[in-house]
Design a protein around this nucleic acid. Structure first.
Length: 270
DNA sequence: CTTCAGGGACCGG
DNA sequence: CCGGTCCCTGAA
């Protein structure tokens, strides 16, 4: 199936540290949550994809967002405007509640390569073997599988994250947490998980559920804010206070501002 | 070989 | 609110 795209970069979007359920194999991106989905950008206006309907694939990749309007909406100053230019083609993905929660728990005090490696390891332990284009791969680990055999997480060398992963898997297996729940209750659900704090929460709300007003703040964002927005957040200390300020500043699409700032700032220094 | 930082969260004070 | 601590990996 071919999908028309505009001002979109699949590589940039899936390499921006928003999602850890996609991986690239021989030039094709693959996602093994539910039915296998593969995608490849063949030119600047064409996405070749299969494994799901066009609507579903667009949803996963944030392609239903009105990016023109969003970019305009968040262009509050020169710094963010330049970040938008430098990181053009990005979309906020919609990775799903569980894939996102697991991914960002694994991300705690870790770099992107390490996170991906952990997902692969967990997939080998807990996932099911599937064949895609003649290659044997493993599906993304399900919460039920992990909570059924929590002892096996030891093999994945997750360090102190191991108990967090188990707690999350248990919560997902034993409660009715799902993607239809309103923000307020969902936040309570997530924060009740031992290992989900404010930052992971914001990542899940934004990248997992596509709730675009959330503004996760990691070390990169904090550096950027300190450098570029010290006049706004200079006196503020707590995560919550700074976060509220920035969300207020950027508005309903603050999450996009976060993604652009993160991506452009990370590129600059690395 | 050692040191150190990496998309934080928890706990105690 | 603040500071120490947590586990493991890969880079230096």
């Amino acid at each position: 199936m071919q999908i028309n795209i505009n001002n979109f970069s699949l590589d940039a979007t899936l390499s921006a540290g928003q999602t850890f359920s996609w991986f690239k194999l021989e030039g094709r991106w693959i996602r093994l949550v539910g039915n296998p989905i593969t995608a490849k950008q063949t030119d600047r206006n064409t996405l070749e994809a299969d494994g799901a309907g066009e609507k579903e694939i667009k949803r996963l990749l944030g392609l239903n967002d009105d990016i023109q309007r969003i970019n305009k909406e968040i262009s509050k100053d020169d710094f963010i405007s330049e970040a938008i230019r430098k990181s053009a083609g990005l979309r906020v993905v919609e990775d799903g509640l569980w894939p996102s929660t697991l991914g960002f728990i694994l991300s705690i005090q870790s770099n992107i390569n390490l996170i991906k490696k952990r997902v692969q390891t967990l997939s080998k332990i807990y996932g099911e073997e599937v064949e895609v284009n003649g290659k044997k791969l493993y599906t993304f680990p399900r919460a039920n599988s992990i909570s059924a055999r929590p002892d096996l997480t030891a093999e994945a060398r997750l360090g102190f994250r191991s108990k967090f992963v188990i707690a999350a898997a248990k919560h997902f297996s034993e409660t009715n947490i799902n993607e239809e729940i309103e923000d307020e209750e969902l936040v309570k659900h997530l924060l009740s998980i031992h290992g989900v704090g404010p930052k992971v929460l914001d990542c899940v709300m934004l990248y997992g559920l596509h709730r675009l007003s959330y503004f996760p703040m990691d070390v990169w964002i904090e550096r950027a804010l300190k450098e570029k927005y010290s006049n706004m957040v200079g006196g503020l200390k707590s995560y919550r206070a700074i976060n509220e300020k920035m969300r207020e500043y950027f508005g309903e699409f603050a999450g996009y501002a976060q993604l652009y700032i993160y991506d452009s700032f990370r590129k600059k220094t690395s």
